[in-house]
Amino acid sequence: MIPVFDGHNDFLQRMVAAGPDRDRLWLQGDGTGHLDLPRMKAGGFAGGFFAIWTPSPPGPDDALAAMLKKDPPFALDLPPEIPAAQALPHAIAQAGQLMAMARTGTLDICRTAAELRASIEAGRIAAILHIEGAEPIPDLDALHVWHAMGLRSLGPVWSRPTRYGHGVPFAFPASPDTGPGLTEAGKELVGECNRLRIMLDLSHLNEKGFDDVARLSDAPLVASHSCAHAVAPSSRNLTDRQLAVIAESGGLVGLNYAVGFLHPEGRREPMHGFEIMLRHLDHLLAHLGEDGVALGSDFDGADMPVDLADAGALQALVQAMLAHGYGRELVEKIAWKNWLGVLQRTWGA
């Protein structure tokens, strides 16, 4: 079994929703969703980025609900920025769930590359605390608080605008060039994340914001869960120009498994087999090289391909890569080694 290190999941929301049944959900599973400890172990899931994300308030024009009902083409407006006072309770609750998982002795919240390796070698889940959308971080003092709590990866936006920048809307077909770049606060955030060695995640950020991070950051550029725009022209996917910028920085892209971002026509119909995923991987490898491609599932946050229905099926993807002609050394890089390499280069330890 080849271990898999994952660039993005949304499991913590399910933990919050489980309430008093959270330990049972984590340790035994409940037959729903994509992740739990038994399925991770069955699929070789060695660790990954556990995302803290603030949902938009429900409303009649809920963008995600509308997106799931629409066939392409579509272009959906997103809700406005969520104030920090509303986002913070959601974020603290999700951080608390990750810490509760660690208290079971089955998972480690890792702050260094050395801790990641030690956790994987010990057979525990190696978790990185990630915030997707910086609404719970109203200023740089708060960033330092989150860093002290274990934050080691940050996406300035989740598609909605924040005080730091602008995300891409859900649109197909569409370019990621959809609005202005980083705000002045966003530019300061980049510098402080560099000083604290917090990885900056470019997934969801629009093209001008991407370019601002590329210009300002001294760290490798990373998109934790994105696909190739040349294969599927979603606004969420990365253009060849963006891939070239990431490659020049020594960065990395984690392939998103979400059907709507993989499908060349943007459809969310059931996807069988691995041919389209391999088409994206081939394209990413051609533009990023063997050290610049990894995996970023979006488990528990999106619709998955039929043959990759949950973490228990990860070795089917591994076998598909081997059968496609990727040698074992390359598959190991994509599956886990490239993530550890880019984090070593970013964190410095």
Rank of each mutant, 00 (worst) to 15 (best):
A148R: 15
A126R: 11
G123E: 10
G133Q: 05
H144F: 04
L143R: 06
E135R: 00
A134F: 07
A142P: 03
A148P: 08
G150R: 02
L151H: 12
D141T: 14
D141E: 12
I128V: 15
H144I: 11
I131Q: 01
P136S: 10
A126V: 05
L140Q: 05
A142T: 15
L143S: 07
P138M: 03
R124T: 13
I125D: 04
M149K: 05
I125R: 07
L143M: 05
G133T: 11
P138A: 03
G123C: 10
A148M: 10
H144K: 15
H144M: 00
E132I: 06
W146T: 03
L151T: 07
R124Q: 13
E135V: 03
E135F: 01
G123D: 08
D141P: 11
V145S: 15
P138W: 02
I120C: 06
L129H: 02
E121N: 13
E135P: 12
P136W: 01
P138C: 04
L129C: 09
P138H: 01
D141Q: 14
D139Q: 08
S119Y: 09
A134K: 08
L151P: 07
G150Q: 02
I131N: 10
P136N: 06
A122V: 12
S119D: 08
A134I: 09
H130P: 07
E132L: 11
L129R: 05
A148N: 11
A122M: 06
A127W: 05
H130R: 13
D139G: 02
A127T: 11
L151Y: 05
V145K: 00
H147W: 11
E121S: 14
G150L: 09
P138I: 01
D139H: 03
H147K: 14
L140D: 02
I131A: 12
H147I: 06
E121D: 15
A148Q: 15
A127Y: 11
L151I: 05
I128L: 15
L143T: 02
L140C: 11
